[in-house]
Design a protein around this nucleic acid. Structure first.
Lengths: 134, 134, 134, 134
DNA sequence: GTGGTCTAGACCACG
DNA sequence: GTGGTCTAGACCACA
């Protein structure tokens, strides 16, 4: 398991870990039931402190993405086939979508181009998991 | 000019101000050349420190969204008709898009529904500025 | 004997076993003198390590709920008809009661509703053991 | 603000802090809007590390009991007059109630005595806030 | 001055 | 061997 983390980014490291793992679940590299590396292992790989990884995992656990088991470590609990999640999360997600699309407008990206980029990203999610009907 | 700010959000206030203003530009409430309220005025309206507003304006300036002039105050420099912006910004935007779409997958939103939501938001941007050709 | 255990709960498994067994004694499914399953049997049923079951039984033994005998296994030592227990246990129990009731207040449950819920649970305890005078 | 914490308890310190604060909210010592001491201040008072207090506050924040503001610190967000909370929390609360009442049975407390103890505790909650109708 | 992040290391609980 | 807790201290972001 390799995650590309930027130690100099203004985005907190634990948040980057969380984001990369969510992406890995979305694109099918980590399916439901897949085991994540142990906190200390991943911390060692990324050359960071294990508490930072711990915080990322804890965040994912609270979001319902993984479950953490003292014995077997962290395991993916829900992926794109797990059905709808908490409406509250969806609402919050929608707010961020609005902001991101507003930024695209100001950046001068046309609405059609934005939709095209969305579709491209979505297709990349399907690739590692081609058997899933949509 | 009214901006809805949540003082208890985990999102920094200056970031919220920046986000709301970007949205105002995107939906046409603030077109190119439009004047933003003075920092002290806005700070007073929102009952916050004017340094916080200053920080938001400075962020928008560095992003190329507004132009700040000592005597005429802050003015919108670019809106959705201003043509393409710095490719570096676009690249960074694309990364955040990928993360946001990955979250949607994990939340269980179908790809079609996500595209639909994007389109809906984009249409809401067009409404206050119907004269803009696309 | 079937106990519902959640392997992913934040509550330790041995604690869950202990809790379920205490509830089984309270609701009359396990009366004074009743034999508990052997540690290896129960561990096999729950698909967990038998050391974990051992730990639960040891906890119950120290609490005075069961008696453990090398050849006859674990037997219920006291149930609701056994008379008052160690005042120290009662005192500690009372502290936890206070915390739990405080949580109910903060959750917005009315005091009357809380009492009602208590009574309902207590009635469920009486059902499997209707002969006990109160 | 003084909280009685047992450093030698098997209950984690951050959990004890959380429990004591919930009780303080329930009994009216901390009403809605009341300010909690700063994390570092409370840590100093209790002679513990501020990270431990931090964790307690974070827990309360996630439970919806307090809100945390970079400027003004932690403030009580909901007390017993705030109306019903998340049904999921209530359900989890009910499970713990069942376990606690089962323990009372096994301890030899009569059902009537348990109800009496509940009522006594509840009356103590009303004392510091006598104006609240129930 | 407030909380948030990250590091570092020790010790414990769990299974 | 896994995660959880606590301590300790540095540095930064926010308002």
């Amino acid at each position: 398991m390799h995650l590309s983390i930027d130690l100099d980014s203004e985005v907190p490291i634990y948040q980057q870990i969380r984001d990369r793992l969510v992406e890995a679940v979305a694109d099918g590299h980590l399916g439901e039931g897949a085991a994540l590396p142990s906190t200390r292992q991943l911390a060692s790989d990324l050359a960071i402190n294990f508490h930072t990884v711990n915080k990322a995992y804890d965040l994912l656990r609270r979001e319902g993405v993984i479950r953490v088991n003292r014995k077997s470590g962290a395991v993916v609990r829900r992926d794109s086939r797990s059905g709808p999640a908490d409406p509250q999360f969806v609402e919050e997600w929608q707010r961020r979508l609005r902001t991101l699309l507003a930024e695209a407008e100001v950046l001068g990206l046309s609405q059609a181009e934005v939709i095209e980029r969305c579709s491209t990203v979505q297709r990349s999610f399907g690739q590692a998991r081609p058997d899933t009907p949509r």
